[in-house]
């Protein structure tokens, strides 16, 4: 089995994986980072979104081996250094942008990528950006509000 190594949330990690191992499986099963979730098998739901080299990626669509050498960020790395919620996370709590919490890690990671690229997105731009993230609980209303609030707070 090939050996791979990468940086996840700032820490160097390595492991041996089968060629067919997906990045999300490596994160969840080998590294125990279970905050990244699997909600589908066709790259539709977005529960598995992480950042690879600064870009949001569906971790169910990328082989672990393809992320060899990459910088990966997951939901576990999004809090402030003191453990308090980061700006986007706090906005999701303040605006009730989550219910069951299962899609939430992917939503937060997608939102973070959006706000890197567009500091002040309109409601329409937020909704369009979230096209690849399915939430069955919130109806998106409060997710949109949370992202707008995070943008206003300078996330």
């Amino acid at each position: 089995m090939p050996s791979i190594s990468m940086t996840v949330n700032g820490k160097s990690v390595s492991g041996e994986v089968e060629g067919r191992t997906l990045l999300v499986q490596f994160l969840r099963e080998d590294l125990g980072l279970t905050g990244t979730h699997v909600g589908c098998d066709t790259s539709q739901c977005g529960a598995c979104v992480v950042h690879v080299n600064g870009e949001s990626v569906k971790a169910c669509t990328m082989l672990a081996a393809s992320a060899d050498g990459a910088e990966v960020a997951t939901i576990e790395g999004m809090a402030n250094a003191d453990g308090s919620l980061g700006v986007i996370q706090q906005a999701f709590q303040d605006h009730h942008g989550l219910q069951c919490g299962f899609c939430t890690p992917g939503m937060v990671m997608s939102a973070a990528d959006l706000l890197q690229k567009n500091k002040n997105p309109s409601e329409g731009e937020i909704r369009e950006w979230l096209e690849g993230n399915i939430c069955r609980c919130t109806g998106y209303h409060n997710i949109v509000k949370a992202i707008q609030a995070a943008a206003a707070a300078g996330a």
Binding site: R28, L33, T34, G35, T36, H37, V38, T74, I75, E76, M78, A79, L85, Q89, F92, Q93, D94, H96, L98, C100, G101, F102, T104, P105, V108
Partner: peptide
């Protein structure tokens, strides 16, 4: 009241069955 359960869900510390 803000939801207390959100903290674990927002930090990837929820514990779902598959976790």
């Amino acid at each position: 009241s803000k939801r207390r359960e959100d903290v674990r869900f927002l930090t990837g510390k929820g514990q779902y069955t598959d976790d």
